[in-house]
């Protein structure tokens, strides 16, 4: 007797969001089934891994990243070109860390200049991230959005305190928006409602539900992603149907497991490998939960995850 596979029918569908222009533009989202449940429905577009590029290096860059990126990371343009041409990245995420008021405190104009140089050099889609300080990100992302006009970038992260400024800058320059909420799906929905009420098109939003590294709250992020996706697909909640964006690079490379030396912690093995495995494991978990866009720092980790995606997409 043939076994009939029980299939769930979902009423909702993840919104398809396109970033970039021309032949290299990338679409994400579009799924009408849970992640990789190809037996139940359309799994949508391939998840996007964006390679992180910093406009200024931290004082002590992680050792295992140095081996992979040390030759280019002094210059964001070279770094971005390396991602595009050598690593075959489908997108770059430029993080404007120089603007951090607790660090270099670079001006919005200087950040915009960097954005322009990077965009002049690369064809692939660009994600533009601020320093993640609410007050500074408003003017910085506004200047960056102006500089990137017409390139259909993804900018953020817009938070409860600054979403109006950033959303307006995205709208007037034709960009997409990252809406951030801090591990709180009720707040994620609320921000999307507020954006809609401010006349920002929900079809141009991606949700950042807050990334966590493996061992540092990954399971909470996992549950929040699942809950958002279930609301979008099962309950057909329009505010919960944008694709999800997870900024792994910003959390994975801060933890002691990827930084502590081998002398300090010999039982954890080769430092060069540790961070790569940590970021890759975190990334695959996020994809299984339902993430559509990942920002990753380690090219080797990113390539490992691309292979997993090949298998998962069948």
């Amino acid at each position: 007797m043939a076994v009939e596979i029980l299939k769930e029918n979902y009423g909702g569908k993840v919104i398809t969001v396109e970033i970039g222009t021309g032949e290299t533009a990338v679409k994400v989202g579009g799924a009408s089934a849970l992640p990789f449940h190809s037996f139940e429905g359309d799994v949508g577009h391939r998840p996007l891994i964006a390679y992180e590029v910093l406009d200024a290096l931290p004082e002590e860059p992680p050792v295992s990243l140095q081996a992979q990126l040390g030759a280019v990371w002094e210059d964001p343009v070279k770094w971005a070109l390396h991602c595009q041409n050598d690593l075959k990245a489908r997108a770059v995420a430029l993080r404007l860390v120089s603007t951090d008021p607790d660090g270099q405190d670079a001006s919005p104009e200087s950040a915009a200049e960097t954005v322009k140089k990077v965009l002049d050099a690369i064809d692939i889609p660009l994600i533009i991230l601020g320093c993640f300080k609410e007050a500074k990100d408003g003017p910085v992302l506004k200047a960056a959005a102006d500089a990137a006009r017409g390139r259909n970038c993804l900018i953020g992260k817009a938070q409860e305190e600054n979403y109006k400024t950033i959303a307006a800058a995205a709208t007037s320059n034709g960009h997409k928006l990252i809406a951030f909420s801090n591990l709180d799906f009720n707040l994620a929905k609320q921000i999307n409602i507020l954006l809609s009420q401010a006349d920002f098109d929900i079809n141009n939003v991606v949700i950042d539900p807050t990334a966590s590294a493996l061992g540092y709250g990954l399971e909470y992020t996992y549950s929040v992603i699942e809950r958002i996706r279930a609301a979008g697909l099962v309950q057909n909640d329009a505010m919960m149907q944008p694709p999800m964006f997870l900024d792994l690079a910003s959390v994975v490379w801060k933890i002691k497991e990827v930084k502590a030396s081998e002398e300090e912690l010999p039982e954890w093995g080769d430092l060069g490998e540790r961070g790569v495995h940590w970021e890759a494991s975190t990334a695959v978990s996020m994809l299984m939960a339902g993430a559509e866009i990942l920002v990753m720092a380690s090219p080797r980790a990113a390539q490992t995850v691309e292979k997993s995606v090949d298998q998962l997409m069948g």
Binding site: N186, K189, Q190, I193, R227, M239
Partner: peptide
């Protein structure tokens, strides 16, 4: 639990 709560759930 049929509609996800958000402070402005009545507005949409």
């Amino acid at each position: 639990g049929e509609i996800m709560y958000a402070h402005s759930y009545l507005d949409i």
